[in-house]
Amino acid sequence: MTANVLIEELGPRGQRRVRIGTIVALLAGALALIWMYVQLSNNGQLEGARWTDLFDSGTLRFLGEGLLATIQAAIVAGIIAIVVGFALALMNLSNSRIASALAVGWVELFRALPLLLMIFGVFFIDTSLARGRGGDAVLGVFWSVVVALVLYNSAVLSEIFRAGVRSLDRGQTEAAQSVGMTYWQTMFIVVLPQAVRRMVPAIVAQMATLTKDVSLGFVIGYEEFVRRGAGTPNFGDTEVTNFQAYVSVGLVYFILVWAMAKLADWMESRQRRTPQVAAATEEIESELALGDSLAAGP
């Protein structure tokens, strides 16, 4: 076991204490598991049918459609958010005062509001406009979720892009300008390609967060994965209750987001092997003040 700053290499007494602590912790863990087992089975939550009914083909399809809807919204919102975030970052870094003020306002406002409120806001503005016209809503639930996700994530991503560009060595820009490139040539030919490469792990991590947040579409009736989970106990002739539904939805969701976060961590650790890039990654992190890892912000 590698020592951290807290723990010295243990002497014999320390090692004995660790052994005792290990045994106590394992016993406590076993007791907790037994207690959970007893409580759950007393409440009938461990009965076979409640779980096996999850695998009825109808239930599986019902849940699967929800999962696909989640992934669909995540992909669409993710792509648009990256494009918009990128544009915001360029506006922010540009020499135009109006453009950069607009970008700053956007970022500050949409980062400061709860995403759930933004989803409600977009959705109810859409429906109230439709009511005023006496026609159908323009956006509907899918696009309301996507628009709200784009508002929030473009703001976060633009900060990531900006930090990435600023982390680049000044010398790069100066070198490019000294060979006669204009500001925008420098930006697009020299700075951005390098910056983007460095920012990929942070972007992937943000996509993991975005995927988690698609679940909030639940509140306006978007039929994503969690909403389908909530609907499962009432879906057809099934023994499944809320407990089984949320445990399984949670598990699948966890695997999906965890895989994305792991991918981001892996990409980041691969980049860290190049010292120059590692320094830049650290700078991005400290700019964002996310601490140890770029993966999955709250």
């Binding site: 988690k212 909030l216 809320n242 987001v257 976060a261």
Partner: peptide
């Protein structure tokens, strides 16, 4: 960190 807050609440 990898489970949606909504699911945590439910």
């Amino acid at each position: 960190r990898n489970t949606p807050l909504l699911v945590v609440f439910f």
